[in-house]
Design a protein around this nucleic acid. Structure first.
Length: 306
DNA sequence: ACAAAAATAT
DNA sequence: GATATTTTTG
């Protein structure tokens, strides 16, 4: 507590992802239509099946992602490439592997922090994050690892000050954090409360405004997702540190996400009134991004007047 | 081939 | 919902 607690929040607040920071998150939200349209299937990725004999490559090669013509049909065309996906119906798509980018994890931590350990259950976290395509399973799995990470940190800290990480510096402490093991986790600031369950006034902090669940138009995310095929558009958001979907320079993109437009009404948060509800930061980022008049974000889709 | 991360199963 | 196990990915 002391000054540190007051201090850490100030710093932590600054670390909140800016609109630009959150934008790359959309890379995880590739609309399946787009992915399917291009028949995005990395031969190296064997889905989740045990063993599937590699289908013979079609005679026609896939179009280079650099071609702007890609999101034309991805915009609203319900049907997908009939020629490419002849044996693979779009409806029976399997769920692609979720990649937890630092930004996404940041949101995760942020959500957990705001909820408090008590309410920080997968379901609630998922709802609070309001990330489409994100399922409870994803959060649960990540939460599992995150808890392990917290536990591990407690052991190394030994009850010292809450200097878990330097925040922007990430794993600034060579003694405590091992970048090789906790890459993702080190990237996001860990609220002190997480490591001190029996300390201070139990719960939470977050002076954030309690905003009800407001979800933006999923269309925004879809059009952002379409930008994947457009490096020149994404370049302004691209960070050298994040290798989100780009495994190989030659590989186009293997980051298809399920087009799951889920609306979370958030009924679940009635359990602990007076605490904290939903941070307005999240919804803000996305909306401010595309609603921003000064900076032209990804208005790729001809949504009318764009 | 190993390790880490995520998904899936219990 | 939490934990363990399996599978995939880096």
């Amino acid at each position: 507590m002391r000054e540190e607690d007051s201090n850490w929040f100030s710093r932590w607040e600054e670390e909140l992802p800016s609109p630009e920071e959150l934008m790359p998150l959309s890379q995880s939200l590739i609309t399946p239509n787009l992915a399917l349209a291009f028949d995005i299937r990395n031969p190296n990725h064997a889905q989740q099946q045990q063993q599937q004999p590699p289908p013979p490559p079609p005679s026609s090669a896939l179009q280079p992602p650099s071609q702007p013509s890609l999101f034309e049909f991805a915009a609203d065309s319900g049907d997908l490439g009939s020629g490419a996906a002849g044996d693979e119906p779009a409806r029976t798509l399997k769920r692609p592997r979720l990649v937890w980018t630092p930004q996404l994890h940041k949101r995760f931590v942020d959500a957990v922090a705001h909820l408090g350990i008590k309410n920080a259950v997968p379901k609630t976290i998922m709802q609070l994050m309001s990330v489409d395509g994100l399922t409870r399973e994803n959060v649960a799995s990540h939460l599992q690892k995150y808890r392990l990470y917290l536990k591990r940190m407690q052991g190394l800290s030994g009850g010292s000050g809450g200097g878990a990480n330097g925040g922007s510096g990430g794993a600034g402490l060579g003694a405590s954090t091992d970048p090789a093991t906790d890459h993702l986790f080190a990237s996001s600031p860990v609220p002190p409360h997480f490591l001190h369950p029996g300390r201070a006034n139990s719960e939470h902090f977050l002076p954030f405004v309690p905003v009800p669940a407001l979800q933006h138009n999923q269309q925004q995310q879809q059009m952002l997702a379409a930008a994947v095929g457009h490096p020149h558009l994404l370049s302004q958001y691209h960070r050298p540190q994040m290798g989100l979907y780009g495994s190989s320079p030659d590989s186009h993109f293997e980051h298809p996400f399920l087009g799951r437009q889920t609306q979370q009404p958030m009924h679940r948060m009635g359990g602990t009134p007076g605490h904290n509800q939903a941070p307005s930061s999240y919804v803000e980022d996305l909306e401010s991004a595309n609603g921003n008049g000064g900076r032209k974000v990804l208005t790729l889709f001809p949504s009318g007047d764009d």
